[in-house]
Nucleic acid binder design. Structure first.
Lengths: 224, 224
DNA sequence: CGTCTCTTTGAAACGCGTCAATGGCTGTGG
DNA sequence: CCACAGCCATTGACGCGTTTCAAAGAGACG
């Protein structure tokens, strides 16, 4: 496990102080770490496993915002007083995370300005990510959005194997659909098409990308 | 002009210090304040007029993210070292804004932690805004997205007149289309439909909402 | 008064959502 | 060890919402 970007620029003493204040937590698959609409109590850093962040609209539609893997943090909004989570965080596999209650994280980020800056930087990174996501939803077609989503998943949390880049956590068609703003049917159709074209391999809840460049081409192609 | 949320919780002295460090700037319509991809040099607070924040994708498609009106700030990313603007800021009408170069805003936010917290809070607010925007793009139909976008514009920067709530800056069909992820044709069709239904009044680059509740109903209706 | 930008409306094509039915993998209990 | 139940995935047919393309009208501005 390498040092997460959250700790960059911090002295060993500071890192120790932060770690000492953390409360480790184990999560079973499908267990909730945060619930949309509830007070934003904790800030968390995932060490092992993956969370999925999803949002349900007033109409009841579910959207998947992103996956949070080892070294990624979640819940920066907990640093803002009296805030509530805009989305829910659910473990997709067995998970270990460090958590800091609001009071503690607030105190730490106050005492260690560099930590606050790191979280600030992380937030702006996330912001540009969400912006490009919105951009794609607004302007691109389903095949391109799906291809890009797969490439991002592979790049962010993929493990390289002889058989291609495997996405290192379970992903269902339904989840890919919620991530790209489409239906599981369309996802299924596109992925079997790509599988016969030799671009990727799929299993139940698993995806491996064989030909990233080919997918990239599918992502930028205007017409099939 | 009332105090912007950016200054909340700051002492008069602190506010004076911040204002003293600002560089006022005048913008003509269509003038650029920031350009996507360029180093994020300045943080800005709009006093008069409106900016539009828009993003162009690699494919050349243009998306409108939001409008920035009096009291709103822009460019929090300038507080992050070596960052670049993820979008462009362009004046839609005559504009006056206070601007702080990166060095200055960085120093101020370092010296005045409350200012940094305010900007942090603003960022998280923007984040949840962009998240619901993505949510809507992913799950809702064009009429609902457009109705909501109009209601938001009216709520955020609308002026109440005897003839309804007017959106206080020029907005073209094209811009509404870029805001909602559709085409100006569809926007035009929907708006003339709503105009004959008595929900709103339109002119060239102007919109006034007559019946917010009616629009709200159109926004939540599953089928027409 | 002419030009440019913004807007309207129509008709046709198509992407993709929707519904329905089937098939396969996984884990569980007899 | 086999059978069942439940979840996940596949595939087809159909219909509707939107985009696309074309062409013309209406304000605004110099």
């Amino acid at each position: 496990v390498k040092a997460p970007p959250l700790f960059s620029g911090l002295s060993a003493d500071e890192q120790r102080e932060i770690l000492a204040a953390a409360r480790p937590r184990q999560l079973k698959p499908r267990e909730w770490l945060a619930e949309q609409g509830q007070p934003a109590d904790i800030f968390a850093l995932v060490q092992v496993g993956h969370l999925k962040l999803s949002q349900v609209s007033a109409a009841g539609a579910e959207t998947l915002v992103r996956f949070v893997g080892p070294g990624d943090c979640f819940g920066a909004i907990a640093l803002v007083p009296a805030s509530r989570y805009p989305l829910s965080a659910i473990a997709v596999d067995a998970c270990r995370a460090l958590t800091w209650p609001r009071q503690v994280s607030g105190g730490l980020s106050h005492r260690i300005p560099q930590l606050k800056s790191n979280i600030f930087e992380e937030i702006t990174r996330r912001m540009t990510g969400v912006l490009t996501m919105a951009q794609e939803l607004a302007t691109e077609r389903v095949p391109q959005r799906l291809a890009r989503a797969l490439l991002r998943l592979a790049e962010h949390g993929g493990t390289v194997t002889p058989g291609g880049i495997e996405i290192s956590h379970p992903v269902t068609r339904q989840e890919l659909a919620e991530l790209t703003g489409t239906t599981l049917f369309t996802v299924s159709r596109l992925m079997s098409q790509w599988e016969t074209a030799g671009l990727l391999r799929t299993g139940r809840g698993a995806v491996a990308i064989l030909d990233p460049d080919g997918l990239e081409a599918a992502a930028s192609a205007e017409n099939e």
